[in-house]
C-alpha cells in the first residue's frame, strides 16, 4: 500500500468499534479487561467468572489506543455476552446458586444472547474468542464467523487459554480454516500479535 493510501485509510478509519464475541466462558471479558488495562484507562469492562453467562449485557469502552510505526488506532472495545443455543438453569445450580437465582440468571442470559447477536451489526471488526483447550470447539463459533463474514466484517480468531496444557491452537486453525492468533488473555501471551492483527485488519 502506498504511503498516501495508508494515510488516507488511517484518516478515514482511525477510530473503529471492535466486538469481542464467542461462546460463554471462552475468556471474552478477561481479554476485554486486559486490552483496557494495556491500552485504555485501565477500567475493567466486567466481571470474570468460571460460571457461564457472567456477562449478560454488552459493555463498551472507548479510547483504547493501540499503535505501531504507522500510527495509532482509537478502539472502542465491546465485550458481549456469550452466544449459545441452549440455557439450562440447572447448570447454575451446580455452581452453587439457588434455584431462584439460577432461573433469574437464566432469564437474563437469554436476553443477553439476543443482545450479543444484535450487536453484530454494529461492529467494524471482531475478535472471535475460542477456548482452545476445549475440543471439539463450540459449534456456535461457526454461526458467529458466518454471520460476520456475511456482513463483510473483518474477523480475528483468537485461540485463547493457550497457557493450558490441553490447548490446541493448531486444531483451532484447522477447524475454522482461518489465520488464528494463539493468546492467553489470562497471562498476556500473544497480545502483541493480536494488536498487530487488529491494526492490519483495520487497514493500517
Amino acid at each position: 500500500m502506498s504511503i498516501l493510501s495508508r494515510l488516507f485509510a488511517r484518516s478515514r478509519k482511525a477510530r473503529i468499534t471492535i466486538g469481542i464475541l464467542g461462546a460463554p466462558n471462552a475468556g471474552k471479558t478477561t481479554l476485554a479487561n486486559r486490552i483496557s488495562n494495556e491500552c485504555g484507562n485501565g477500567e475493567p469492562l466486567g466481571v470474570v467468572s468460571p460460571v457461564p453467562h457472567e456477562t449478560r449485557d454488552c459493555k463498551a469502552l472507548e479510547h483504547c489506543v493501540i499503535s505501531d510505526h504507522n500510527g495509532s488506532l482509537d478502539l472502542t472495545i465491546v465485550d458481549t455476552p456469550g452466544i449459545t443455543t441452549s440455557i439450562d438453569y440447572r447448570e447454575f445450580q451446580q455452581h452453587g446458586l439457588s434455584r431462584q437465582e439460577s432461573i433469574q440468571r437464566a432469564k437474563e442470559a437469554t436476553r443477553g444472547v439476543i443482545k450479543a447477536i444484535q450487536s453484530l451489526d454494529k461492529m467494524d471488526a471482531a475478535i472471535v474468542v475460542v477456548d482452545a483447550a476445549r475440543a471439539p470447539f463450540d459449534q456456535i463459533n461457526w454461526t458467529v464467523i458466518g454471520n460476520l463474514e456475511a456482513r463483510k466484517i473483518p474477523i480475528i480468531v483468537a485461540a485463547n487459554k493457550s497457557d493450558l496444557a490441553d490447548a490446541d491452537p493448531e486444531l483451532v486453525k484447522e477447524t475454522f480454516q482461518s489465520d488464528i492468533i494463539p493468546i492467553s488473555a489470562k497471562n498476556g501471551s500473544g497480545m502483541n500479535e493480536l494488536y498487530g492483527s487488529i491494526l492490519s485488519v483495520s487497514g493500517m
Partner: peptide, 19 residues
C-alpha cells in the same frame, strides 16, 4: 441452514426458552 438463519433461530429460541 445458512448463518443468518442460524442467528434468527438463536434469537427466536432465546425468546421461547421457558426455563
Amino acid at each position: 441452514l445458512n448463518p443468518e438463519e442460524e442467528a434468527a433461530l438463536i434469537e427466536e429460541t432465546m425468546i421461547q426458552i421457558d426455563h
